[in-house]
Amino acid sequence: MNKKIKILEVINSLNIGGAELLLRNLVIEAKKNNQYVVDICTLYATNDAKNIEEIKKNNVRIWSLDLKNKYTLSSVGKIKKIIERENYDIVHVHLFPASAFVALSSLFLPNNIRYIFTEHSTFNRRRMLKIFKIVDGFIYSKYSKIICSTKQVQNSLIKWIPKNKEKTEVIPNGTPIHSKSLVNQIIKNYDVLFVGRLVHQKGIRFLLEAVSILQNKYKKYVKVAIVGGGPLEKELKKMCEKLKINDRVEFLGFQRDIDRIMKSSKVFVLPSIWEGFGIVLIEAMKNRLPIVATNVGGIPEIITDGNEGILTPKANSEILAKSVNKVLEDEKFRSKLIQNAYRKVQKKYSIERYTINLLNLYSNILNK
Rank of each mutant, 00 (worst) to 15 (best):
S335K: 14
S265D: 06
L73Y: 14
A210I: 01
E301A: 03
V249E: 02
L214N: 08
H200F: 13
I158K: 00
Q152F: 02
V224T: 11
H120Y: 09
W274E: 07
D247A: 13
L23R: 12
A49I: 14
I338Y: 05
L358D: 08
G77M: 12
A103V: 05
C148H: 01
G298N: 01
N173E: 14
L359E: 07
E235Q: 15
C148I: 08
H200K: 13
L43R: 05
R343F: 08
G174A: 00
D136M: 00
V37T: 14
H120K: 02
R260D: 14
N15H: 05
K219T: 05
R61N: 15
V38M: 04
D330S: 08
E331A: 02
L366R: 06
L73S: 12
I82A: 02
S323K: 01
N15C: 02
I62C: 12
M262W: 00
R114V: 14
I7D: 00
G77H: 11
I356S: 13
D48S: 14
Q346K: 11
L243I: 11
S156F: 13
K165R: 11
T304K: 15
L8I: 15
N112G: 11
L289T: 12
Q152N: 13
G309K: 07
K4Q: 07
I146N: 10
R248A: 10
I11R: 12
V192M: 01
Y362R: 11
L214W: 13
I28K: 12
L26Y: 15
K80H: 03
K163D: 04
K80T: 13
F333E: 04
L252T: 09
G228N: 15
I171S: 02
Y190D: 02
L328S: 07
S363W: 06
H120P: 03
A45W: 11
T150Y: 00
I177W: 03
Y221T: 06
V135D: 13
I134M: 10
I299Y: 03
N58T: 09
N246Y: 09
L207D: 07
L207E: 06
A315F: 05
N47Y: 02
Q185N: 12
S265F: 07
I158E: 06
V292H: 01
V292T: 03
R260S: 12
G306P: 07
P110H: 13
S179V: 12
V91K: 00
L14P: 10
V60I: 15
A321I: 10
F108D: 04
N307C: 12
F268N: 04
Y88K: 04
S363D: 08
V211A: 04
V183Q: 07
K180C: 11
A30E: 02
S265Y: 10
I310M: 08
